[in-house]
Amino acid sequence: MVMRMNVTIKDVAKRANVAPSTVSRVIADSPRISKETKERVWKAMEELGYYPNAIARSLASKVTNTLGLIMPRSTEEAFSNPFFPEVMRGISVVAHREKYDLLLSTSGNKEEEKEAVIRMVKGKRVDGIILLSSRTTDELIPWLRDEKFPFVVIGKPLDARGVYWVDNDNIGASKLATNYLIKHGHREIAFISGSLEYVVSLDRLDGYKLALEENGLTFKRELVEQEEFSEDGGYRAMMKILERAKPTGVVVTDDVMAFGVIRATIDKGFRVPEDISIVGFNNIPLSAFANPPLTTIDISTFELGIKSAELLIARLKQKEIESDHIIVPVKLIERKSCVSR
């Protein structure tokens, strides 16, 4: 590649053997310019080391080639859980392939979160938005829907009308985890989740209840606890349960929380898995190195990111879309944190 100072559109036009106005239209991605001409102009830009000013390009084309990512909590909290870096890795792969940049927004509360989205949309900073979680009382989804702004949600919304989303079958996944323990002879099975303000927590609680019901087992409120999605949250939840009940198995809807559950179980004088078996969710890399290695539900986090970005970009490019949602399959990974009773 030839590197020159002060390369201009005229230089590019001369190299590509087109008019300067044609170069401007290529930068604006005008549909009136043929694919062959666009490729020739972009090749000339690359050879000359010319990159159009991003702001000027977005003003000309009315697109930014940028996707907004909305985290559901502060950066410190979000990146302490491997789910979010992994789902963002999937999004990044597709964004890079399709030549989109990413604009990440984190916030301390729901008000700051909404303000960040409004700035992105009203300030024309992004072409579309990916929400990395779905809450039961979500103000962003109805606002974006009313604005008719392209967005995709990771997690099935409580009200999915007119919303594009990507998720697992969380009810089925939770049934899979609970049935695994039941199959191994467990009857007193606890359930620990993150906050029930998240739809994923509600769905997994429903799956747990269904598995109990279908196997003739009674749902016991004292065996259920919710806490924040963190190792300390899992520890606190398990401590509360062990103060009022003695489960032989536990379904934990997050691997990081499950690490805290293991720690609480041991601190209370029980052994894992000999006394209490544990099944987690997400299959994060550290799960294989826990003590004991954690049996978990692999939700294909990377694939959730891939599919959410592909769905949003398909919308932005006005491609034909078969469905407004994508269900990513799950599988159970057996390790050493469960034994038969």
Rank of each mutant, 00 (worst) to 15 (best):
M1C: 05
V2Y: 04
K14N: 13
A16I: 07
N17W: 01
T22K: 05
I27R: 02
R32C: 07
V41R: 00
E47H: 02
A54G: 15
A60E: 05
S61Q: 09
V63H: 15
G68D: 14
R73Y: 11
N81T: 15
P85W: 06
P85E: 10
V87S: 02
R89S: 15
V93M: 15
E98L: 09
I118D: 04
K122H: 15
K124L: 12
S134Q: 04
T137M: 13
D138E: 03
W143Y: 15
L144C: 11
E147N: 08
L158S: 13
D159N: 03
G162E: 13
V166N: 04
N168V: 12
S174M: 01
A177K: 00
E188D: 14
V199H: 03
V200P: 00
S201T: 12
D203V: 01
G207E: 06
K209M: 14
L210T: 13
E214K: 09
V224F: 09
V224R: 00
E225Y: 01
Y235L: 10
A237T: 01
L242E: 06
A245S: 14
A258N: 08
D267R: 12
K268P: 06
G269V: 14
I278W: 10
A288E: 14
N291T: 11
P293Y: 08
F302A: 10
Q318A: 13
E322C: 07
S323I: 08
D324A: 02
I333W: 02
